[in-house]
Design a binder for these strands. Sequence first.
DNA 1: GAGTTTGAAACT
DNA 2: CAGTTTCAAACTC
Length: 279
Amino acid sequence: MASISRIQSDLSSHVAINNVGHTSEQLNVQNQLLTSPDATKFATLDDSHIGRNQNLLESTLQSHSTSTLQYLEISMQPNINNHETVPSNTSLLPPEEASKSEYSKQTMLGMKRENDAENLGQKLCKCKKSRCLKLYCVCFAGGELCDEACKCKDCFNKSSQEEMISSTKQKIKNRNPHAFSPEVVHDPEVIYANGEQIENDSMCVTVPTARHKTGCSCRKSKCHKKYCECYQAGVGCTLSCRCIDCGNIHHTKQGIAWYLWETAFIHAMLQSILSIKWQ
DNA sequence: GAGTTTGAAACT
DNA sequence: CAGTTTCAAACTC
Ligand SMILES: [Zn+2]
Ligand SMILES: [Zn+2]
Ligand SMILES: [Zn+2]
Ligand SMILES: [Zn+2]
Ligand SMILES: [Zn+2]
Ligand SMILES: [Zn+2]
């Protein structure tokens, strides 16, 4: 998709496209203005902000009609022409399935490692059937080898199985190019839709907060529990989510649109109040 | 710890 | 694609 790469190169000239970098100070100011509608923010609004909000409100409302949906419907490159064989679920076991006997000293060591891993923030898995070679496994999905403190069975996600890991990874990448990319986008100039990076412009309102790369499809959790990937990642749902009865509204496009409308409405009310000729 | 619920990932 | 199954984590008790 040539347009996307052009957009990326254009953006990279003045915006850092990565998942940690925050951009210019000006952008941060804009972000502050657009993020959650804290009551404290209203105190800081002046006319210039209001004017900008009105402009953004227009583009927000426009973006809710067709243009945003068109953006959001851009699909991934169908890269699935690959008919390589999938690692079969036959009976091979890795050479050294650790001898987890000799407990007393061993368990102490295991606890220590578990604590270490937890302290380092590494997630531990307890996979039983996936051999830690599918995205079901949090370790594998996170691009990490399993920790010694993982409680997985028949684990292939260890250094002795590098070739199996890389080939399996490649097959999954062929299916979904973003399978191993970070789950959350922090760059406010970039939004993901169906796995593709999309530029924000006047017709696609800036979303100044982090977003999950694919969005969720929650049906029962209202996106209020960790079952929801958006909620778990600490970000709000977006238009690319397919959730039903979403409660994860904070920092969403809808939330921003509401904030902008609210801000414009309050400004209009203030103006009319000030225009009243008392006495 | 056991059992249930949940939604992504995998599969057909 | 959509519908179904599989899977391991999140949650509940
Ligand atoms: Zn695992
Ligand atoms: Zn693991
Ligand atoms: Zn493992
Ligand atoms: Zn959700
Ligand atoms: Zn979501
Ligand atoms: Zn949601």
